[in-house]
Design a protein around this nucleic acid. Structure first.
Lengths: 100, 100
DNA sequence: AAAACATATCTAATTTTCTAGATATGTAAA
DNA sequence: TTTACATATCTAGAAAATTAGATATGTTTT
């Protein structure tokens, strides 16, 4: 858990929004076509539509967020689903609380 | 209180260190020559010495941190002292806790 | 008033981030 | 076994961040 790397992720409105949206997938995204739940998060295409940025940009963002351990990917067929890594998010805030 | 602007400040090791150091000025800096307390924080020169970066870089960092409302400047004679803005720091962490 | 000192701002070079188009890869459908 | 589709990676140009030297500003001292 790296404060600077995670802060870099949060230093961008779209990436902060993605984390917020993933907190309530049912409320923020349409249902998936292949599965009827959001247990593994949301597919890239939906996130892209909501963010209004290009496919490659969103993929780059998601990869950076995954490298910072903020989100967890799961492959379902041809889709990749991303969900929040609540442990790391909580640990980050906890660290800010004590160390900062 | 802007999440992205504050996160940009935290996206740099030296700036995070400055916030940490300012949490305990007595423990991290030598006493000032003109005054015998740290009520208004620490002068720029001491922060510069501790960080090991150039005067202009540290001044630029401190200005960015001040623009994000993370620190508060006070002028004493020819020195500028900087102290933490605890309200904004707490509000930032609070916002992360609920919104994020 | 001049010199000295602390800090801020200007300028500029280097590095990093942002962003998207083109292309590659992996999976499913025809 | 092509074709279509979803996502990832490559490439590259534009914008922003990093950093320091030079210079300006404000304050104190001589």
């Amino acid at each position: 858990m790296n404060i600077v790397d995670i802060s870099k992720v949060l230093a961008n409105k779209t990436r902060v929004n993605i984390l917020k949206w993933l907190k309530d997938p049912e409320g923020n995204f349409p249902p998936h076509k292949d599965i009827d739940h959001f247990n593994d998060g949301v597919c890239v295409g939906y996130i892209q539509d909501k963010a209004g940025l290009s496919q490659s940009t969103i993929s780059t963002y998601l990869t950076a967020m995954q490298n910072a351990d903020l989100i967890i990917p799961t492959r379902h067929g041809k889709w990749t689903y991303y969900k929040r890594n609540e442990e790391v998010i909580a640990a980050y805030i906890d660290t800010l609380n004590t160390l900062l």
